[in-house]
Design a protein around this nucleic acid. Structure first.
Lengths: 351, 351
DNA sequence: TTGAAAGCGTTACCAA
DNA sequence: TTGGTAACGCTTTCAA
């Protein structure tokens, strides 16, 4: 077995405190003694204080957790998530904090357990569907946390964008181009995935908070143009992936009066929509498509989309966690968004 | 302060062991008592056993660490790294293990400390430059680990590809197309970043193990075609990014006899090369470029490259860690690679 | 089925 | 500058 701090102390002939200080508080003992301790430790193969024991004693872990709905293998499918984590990592590194990636099982009790078992000093909550159960579990542990989608309590730390206004800007752009018959594409639109094509009685019924907010924004712009919610076609992707976006979009072709534009709630879904539309030949190519996030590929392909600062969002979230603002009201940070118009959106084709 | 297990025990009027069992070993006590304990705990706001204390006592953390050279914000710049982590995450999730992302500071002692302070049950080492120092630190802790680039000891677990043969296949393809005057593009080619354009006395001098192996493979194929190492132009990117690849490649234009092809040690570098060459007008467009990894964008752009199974590499690494093979010799897994020929490579232009 | 006692490997405090 | 003592919060024998 690996030697412990105690063994080193005995070998050197000093107390455990002194050995501990040799590692954690070099100023508390003479350089000479410290050297002697470190040297003996090296010879004995002592790897330094055990991280777990130190955490227990100090009450600090030195890691922050990033909470994801569902499997990471799925979450990382969206470049936006990767950029968010990158931002979190950047800030964490500056604070000598490690990053613990915590995927949440779909069932509530499993998710709760995952939160309860994570050895961290705080949480960044990345776009979780069911915020409430998760937040309750976090609060239960008494750990600080930062939310990035739905806002929770007024005093809770949060970083995000004005989802609804941002979505509205994309829709307004299409309205201006003359589009009136359009489809909205999102995931988690229904409690359970039903058919791809359906009418949702009310935007407020959409379970996923982000999808709901963005859909509401889309609807705002069209309502202003005289198009009521009930006239919008809603496409439900089974998840937030390109393939799912394509599958959901392909249902459009069979419509008697197909829409002239598709507004996607994310770029990955938008790419899926483009894939599906390209397969529809001439008609499909005429359909305008907008996305959300502005991931790198959007520029390459020419996707009109809403840009939100991904890395900055992650970085800010981590900073909010690691450098808590003195004033609680400074704990809510709204990030800017921009509509980026590219070639995937254009005027309504006359026919 | 949050209540502890002890407080719950006192409140219910049972011993701490019993409360502990209520959480960790439900079969050790009557359902009725268990219910009563859990209910009281809930009312008191006890979040369940503290993860750190449990880890200390049990000797198991429930997380595996992934070691990266340098900042994560840089590592995640390469989609290959993201896919690797995704694979690791997939296997980790199956084993109810969390993922701790551990960036290693560039200095040896900082890196050592990072390894010593990580609360994990084992490590996946992702492409670290200085393997030895790191591995020594891991061995010092007595934790299991899996390596993915350089192989270490014969009994150590490892998953990877035949770097050299894979690189050779790309170079052989260019040889067949008639290329004889070519440039190799890689990062960490020199101990310290010197000029972009230089002669390296010997492949064996390249410090980065992966770059070295791939360069050696490139050189193999050209040696067979009668082109010695000294006739190959070596381009040094300051790091493994698209921009650095572009910067390094732009030096080519000023050469009296510019090469007809660029062999990059990674896809991101290859994209950089393409960026730079496209700026050179007609001449640049004629230059063949090959990459390595086959990240998603390679297909979009038509980059000829060597495919290696990214997710599988990560998944296998984690599995090797979490399900140690009974036979040590089964701990070394070689993954297949394929040369994927696309449009970025073609015959030597006559001029 | 329940409980008492003995740690797990540290660090913090206070006294010497 | 150094050492003793008491936790940190839990789990695990083993005995009742």
């Amino acid at each position: 077995m690996k030697p412990t701090l105690k063994a080193v102390a005995e070998a050197v002939g000093v107390s455990r405190s002194t050995v501990s200080n040799a590692y954690g508080r070099p100023d508390q003992l003479s350089t000479e003694l410290r050297e002697r301790i470190l040297e003996t430790a090296r010879q004995m193969g002592y790897p330094g204080p055990d991280p777990t024991a130190r955490s227990l004693r100090r009450g600090v872990v030195g890691a922050i957790g990033v909470l994801f709905t569902s499997r990471l293998s799925y979450a990382f499918t969206d470049p936006f998530a990767v950029r968010f984590v990158t931002g979190v990592a950047e800030a964490a590194e500056r604070h000598d904090s490690n990053l613990l990636l915590v995927p949440l099982p779909p069932d509530a009790s499993g998710a709760r357990r995952a939160v309860e078992n994570a050895a961290v000093d705080g949480f960044c909550v990345y776009c979780v569907g069911d915020e409430e159960g998760i937040l309750a579990a976090i609060r239960g542990r008494g750990l600080p946390f930062v939310t990035t989608s739905a806002r929770s309590g007024a005093d809770d730390r949060w970083v995000g964008i004005d989802e609804r206004a941002a979505a509205r800007s994309a829709a307004a752009h299409l309205v201006e181009l003359g589009h009136r018959r359009v489809a909205l594409l999102g995931h988690d639109v229904l409690p359970r995935a039903a058919s791809d094509l359906l009418r949702v009685a009310d935007v407020a019924d959409v379970p996923h908070p982000t999808t709901r907010d963005r859909f509401a924004g889309f609807a705002d712009a069209f309502a202003t143009a005289g198009v009521p919610w009930s006239d919008l076609t809603v496409l439900t992707a089974r998840d937030n992936t390109r393939d799912a976006g394509a599958a959901a979009t392909s249902a459009l072709a069979s419509l008697p009066e197909p829409p002239t534009a598709v507004l996607a709630a994310s770029d990955v879904l938008a790419f899926g929509a483009l894939d599906a539309l390209r397969e529809q030949g001439e008609w499909g190519r005429q359909v305008s498509v907008t996305g959300f996030d502005d991931i790198a590929e959007a520029a390459t392909v020419g996707l009109t989309t809403v840009r939100q600062p991904a890395e900055q969002k992650g970085r800010t979230a981590a900073e909010l966690l690691l450098e808590p603002p003195a004033d609680a009201r400074a704990g809510q940070i709204l990030l800017p968004t921009t509509l980026v118009v590219r070639t995937s959106s254009g005027p309504v084709p006359r026919s």
